[in-house]
């Protein structure tokens, strides 16, 4: 039997093969694991309450994370998903991390800012296509009510924890409650018909499912919501532009009204919507 060179002997081969992989393990597993900065909680990181934790378990169990990411990347394409890109410390309390790898559905990092109402979430989980005819999301109507509540509670908890809270409940507020920054705001489009048309288009894409196609608070989701969505034809008469702009921007506390500032409408678009709402005044 001829003698093999050393590197062709099985044990030697095995050790060398292992060492080659060991290089990768050292720099891309061991080094990040030892990086303490990656574990420091950021201002965005908040431990979940018991119900939200249960909701997160259901989120993992039902595989929501195959179609929904919870990572806002550091690139311009992702700006629509929230006010700030995700940072390592945002996940300090997350196990599993549930970053996700595909966006068949929207990113959910700040979904609680866009859809802050648990009843809306439950209705959407039960019958996504009632609220969004083109949705391809599975219906979760088969889940027990307790599971749906936990899941909805978890989803609503996913929001920007770093911005100052300027939110109040709209139907319990008056002109006096408008925060200073909004009190001084001026509609750049006052009386501009093109802006009203643009606001009309935005309204019939983003607002109508709660407020209704006629803006009288009677959209398909309205029956699930408490308090009910506002009748904007009335608001147009009773509220100032500044009040409307404040609520459209910051949302309404403990209701389904999202903070559109965080939910993807630019300042310009929010003024256009306000112009449209105002244009409805007196058209009842």
């Amino acid at each position: 039997m001829k003698k093999l060179p050393l590197y062709k002997k099985l044990p030697v081969f095995g050790v060398v093969a292992f060492l080659f992989l060991g290089f990768a393990i050292t720099i891309t597993v061991a080094a990040p694991l030892m990086d303490k900065e990656l574990y420091q909680p950021s201002p965005q990181a908040k431990p979940l309450d018991a119900l939200a934790s249960k909701g997160r378990e259901i989120y993992a169990r039902e595989g929501c994370w195959y179609c929904h990411t919870q990572t806002v990347r550091t690139i311009a394409n992702d700006k629509k998903w929230g006010p700030r890109a995700s940072q390592p410390g945002d996940f300090a309390y997350s196990n599993p991390a549930l970053l996700g790898s595909e966006r068949t559905g929207p990113d959910l990092t700040y979904v609680g800012d866009r859809w802050p109402d648990e009843n809306w979430q439950i209705k959407h989980l039960q019958d996504p296509r009632a609220l969004n005819p083109d949705s391809v999301m599975p219906s979760f109507a088969h889940l027990p009510q307790a599971d749906l509540q936990a899941l909805a509670h978890y989803l609503v908890s996913l929001k920007d924890n770093t911005a100052p809270d300027l939110q109040k409940r709209a139907d319990q507020s008056t002109e006096a409650d408008i925060p200073d920054v909004y009190k001084k705001a001026v509609n750049p489009f006052a009386g501009d018909t093109a802006a009203i048309a643009a606001g009309d288009a935005i309204f019939h894409k983003s607002c109508w499912s709660c407020h209704g196609a006629t803006a009288e608070g009677n959209g398909p989701a309205a029956s699930a919501l408490k308090p009910p969505p506002a009748n904007l034809r009335k608001s147009a008469l009773t509220r100032s532009e500044q009040f409307l702009f404040w609520i459209v921007s910051e949302g309404s506390k403990s209701t389904a009204m999202p903070a559109w500032k965080k939910a993807g409408l630019t300042e310009e678009q929010r003024w256009q919507v306000v112009s449209y709402i105002k244009s409805l005044g007196g058209q009842q």
Binding site: A24, A92, N95, A97, L99
Partner: peptide, 15 residues
């Protein structure tokens, strides 16, 4: 116990 949490969970997962 799944001891690796946070963003390192994703790092190890994709390793």
């Amino acid at each position: 116990t799944n001891p690796i949490s946070g963003v390192n969970d994703a790092v190890v997962n994709w390793f």
